[in-house]
């Protein structure tokens, strides 16, 4: 008889990295649905387009690198990157914007670093930041929530046939920031912006974030991610917000507004949890996420951008190895944990 010879363990779990990634994609579906409900088909079109661009870019570069294309495409990592970037882009994004962002994310931020597992930065956020800096206008043209465009309008926006100017509107974060840009806004001024006053947070966006929160909870329940990063992220964002709001509720947005606006929930459960570019140990991840949240609040409140998930994540990606050095767990049989590298 011909016997398999292999080293222990001989039994392994049946899932694989592809299954992990697919779970992540499934978990984004509620958020995508709410985005579509609030803003029309633009997000769906962009996500699908982004997936196509990502797969083609990935395949081209896998071929260039002499890798097994089918094997690596099946790990769904490129798809996840594309979906997350597609979700982060405004629904008004024209095709070329998505093309540039996604291809840059896949080719430069991922494949040039050696592919899956080797990229120090979150590829989706690298693509997002590239676009935000290169095309700031196109990247900030959101639609008014609750007034979804028809598929045709969305398609025309995507193809560039429809000018975006007449349709676009500010997001709650943008509105809040603009109100305070010329010094502290009065309570009445803030009250005049209906977009700031949804059921419990910014209009429309509260549902978007709630949907991503639900998807995130699904991921935790499926043990795709652990609670450390989302909790750290939300605490890092929410606690300073709470403190500041308690001090000055007019000058500072309330914590719920902060947590349910912009990319907060998407960032907390889907972006910051990218394991490749995050810190590794539990404690490290907690610190990593706390600092992301804190940075987001700082940039949102004091910075030049209305939202800051991408910048914060990239900055903490940079710090992840450093955090890892100082957060190694105490190994069994050792008195204390180790620090640094060898």
């Amino acid at each position: 008889m011909s016997l398999i010879t292999s080293t222990s363990p001989h039994a392994t779990v049946k899932n694989n990295t592809g299954a992990f990634m697919r779970q992540v994609i499934y978990a984004t579906l509620p958020g995508l649905a709410v985005l579509t409900w609030q803003f029309g088909w633009g997000s769906v079109i962009n996500v699908l387009w982004a997936v196509i661009v990502a797969l083609v870019s990935e395949a081209l570069f896998l071929k260039a690198r002499g890798r097994n294309i089918a094997f690596y495409l099946k790990d769904y990592s490129a798809v996840v990157t594309a979906v997350l970037l597609g979700l982060a882009l405004p629904p008004t994004a024209p095709w070329w914007l998505t093309l540039i962002g996604v291809s840059f994310a896949i080719i430069v931020a991922k494949q040039l670093y050696g592919g899956l597992g080797m990229n120090p930065f979150n590829p989706a956020m690298v693509g997002y930041v590239l676009l935000l800096i290169s095309f700031p206008v196109a990247m900030t043209q959101w639609l008014a929530p609750g007034e979804p465009l028809s598929f045709v309008q969305s398609w025309q926006l995507f193809t560039g046939q429809l000018p975006v100017d007449g349709l676009s509107g500010a997001t709650p974060l943008d509105t809040f920031r603009t109100a305070h840009s010329a010094g502290a806004a009065s309570e009445g001024e803030l009250a005049s912006h209906s977009i700031l006053h949804g059921q419990f947070a910014g209009l429309g966006w509260e549902w978007v974030n709630l949907a991503f929160l639900l998807g995130g909870l699904y991921l935790i329940s499926r043990k795709i991610i652990t609670w450390h990063i989302p909790v750290g992220f939300l605490a890092g964002l929410g606690l300073p917000a709470l403190l500041a709001w308690l001090i000055d509720p007019v000058r500072f947005a309330d914590p719920l507004f902060q947590l349910f606006s912009g990319g907060a929930m998407l960032g907390a459960f889907f972006i910051a949890t990218d394991p490749v570019s995050a810190a590794t140990s539990r404690m490290g991840r907690l610190i990593y996420a706390l600092l992301i949240g804190l940075l987001i609040w700082v940039i949102r409140t004091f910075g030049g951008y209305p939202d800051a998930v991408a910048f914060s994540v990239l900055l903490l990606n940079l710090s992840a190895p450093f955090i890892d050095y100082y957060t190694q767990p105490r190994t069994y049989g050792h008195k204390s944990s180790k620090r640094g590298v060898s």
């Binding site: 392994t12 990295t17 899956l116 597992g117 394991p275």
Partner: peptide, 28 residues
């Protein structure tokens, strides 16, 4: 007990660290 599937890249998911009884960082 099938043949082990082909090795994929490590994505640092940390599952290994979660299950390590010695509390090591296996992926490191």
């Amino acid at each position: 007990l099938p043949e082990p599937p082909p090795e994929q890249p490590c994505i640092r998911c940390g599952s290994c660290a979660e299950v390590c009884p010695a509390n090591l960082l296996p992926q490191q």
